[in-house]
Structure formats: structure tokens, C-alpha cells
């Protein structure tokens, strides 16, 4: 049975541009949310998601139906976000907020900052990781910790993905607690 995405893609490829709006409606929220995890800013997240939809439109013929449409769409989006962010200044400034949280133990962090601010600091630190580790962390949690889907979206082997996730955690641990394993 064809999904709504299959139908819309076939119609767009057949020349009915307006059917692309159905795809935008269904996927705008996930794509904006994914972009937000990269930039932590609503307006910039919308700009990035818009670029991702345009790229998706231009590359629609490249979608091989053996992959789910969502998996292909997310991989296009991640590649757009990555290349757009490469052009921007390094987001290391985001780490500035974490200076206050740097300490020798997680208990001390608990004492210093409230839960909401701590969570936001961690999310910003993830967004400021080098792309090699940032993308796996963001997509893995965005995909509800589904290793197989994350690997497909990023075009990585599961073993490589696990190694990068592990390394990303080590970097974050070092940033926040000063500990290295």
C-alpha cells in the first residue's frame, strides 16, 4: 500500500508542484525540531528546515524507495544542516555558558544550577561538539535512540556510530566534570 508520502512524491515528479505542500505539512515539525537541536534558535531552525525542504525537492528523484521516505528526508536534512553550519562561525561560544557548570563532580553541578538550565547547557554543548560527534548525538536522540535508523540517516555503520557516540559522551563528560575515562 502506498503511503501519503509515496503518493505526493509521485505527483510532484509527475509535475504537480502543489502536492509538495503535503510533504511540507507532514514533516515541517520534525525538520524544524531537528534543526533546533543544531542551532538552539527558533528562527534559524526554520531557515535551516526551509533549506532542507528545497534540497529535498531538488533531489526528489534520488529517493530510492527501498529506504523509508522519512529516513531519506532526515539524511537530506542533516546534510543541509551540516553544510550550512560549516559556513557559520564555530558555535564554540555556546560553550561559554558551560563554564559556570564546569566542576569536579556531578553533585556540585546539582548544587549550582537548576535542572532546566543544566539540561539546556548540555544541549548547547552537544550542538557545539565537532560535527563528527555532534551529528550522531543529535540524530540518535532525535530518533528515540534507534541505532539502526540513526546509522541509516547518517550513512554510517552501526559500529562506527557506537564509537562516535561513546567518544561524544567522553568529550561532554570532560567539558562538564573535568573527568576523563
Amino acid at each position: 500500500m502506498l503511503s501519503a508520502d509515496d503518493d505526493d512524491v509521485a505527483a510532484v515528479l509527475g509535475g504537480d508542484l502543489e502536492r509538495f505542500e503535503g510533504i511540507v505539512h507532514r514533516w515541517q515539525r520534525p525538520l524544524v525540531n531537528l534543526a533546533y537541536r543544531y542551532v538552539r534558535d527558533h528562527a534559524r531552525a526554520e531557515d535551516l528546515a526551509q533549506e532542507a525542504f528545497l534540497k529535498c525537492f531538488r533531489s526528489l528523484r534520488q529517493w530510492r524507495r527501498e529506504a523509508q521516505f522519512s529516513t531519506w528526508l532526515f539524511s537530506v536534512a542533516v546534510s543541509v544542516y551540516r553544510s550550512r553550519l560549516r559556513r557559520l562561525e564555530p558555535v564554540l561560544a555556546l560553550l561559554d555558558d558551560n563554564e559556570a557548570t564546569k566542576d569536579s563532580s556531578a553533585e556540585t553541578i546539582d548544587d549550582r544550577i537548576d535542572e532546566g538550565r543544566r539540561a539546556e547547557s548540555i544541549r548547547r554543548a552537544v550542538a557545539a561538539l565537532p560535527p563528527l560527534y555532534r551529528d550522531p548525538m543529535i540524530v540518535f536522540y532525535f530518533q528515540d535512540e534507534d541505532l539502526a535508523t540513526t546509522a541509516k540517516v547518517l550513512g554510517l555503520r552501526e559500529g562506527t556510530l557506537k564509537a562516535r557516540l561513546h567518544r561524544a559522551r567522553e568529550i561532554l563528560r570532560a567539558v562538564f566534570t573535568g573527568e576523563t575515562k
Binding site: E46, I109, I122, M137, E145
Partner: peptide
Amino acid sequence: LLDDALKARESIEP
């Protein structure tokens, strides 16, 4: 801490 922060669903509406 990391898991809790990243698992939390942030609802950003376009």
C-alpha cells in the same frame, strides 16, 4: 544527566 537532557522532547512549532 545527559540522557535526561537529550531524551526530553522539545516541542518547537513551526
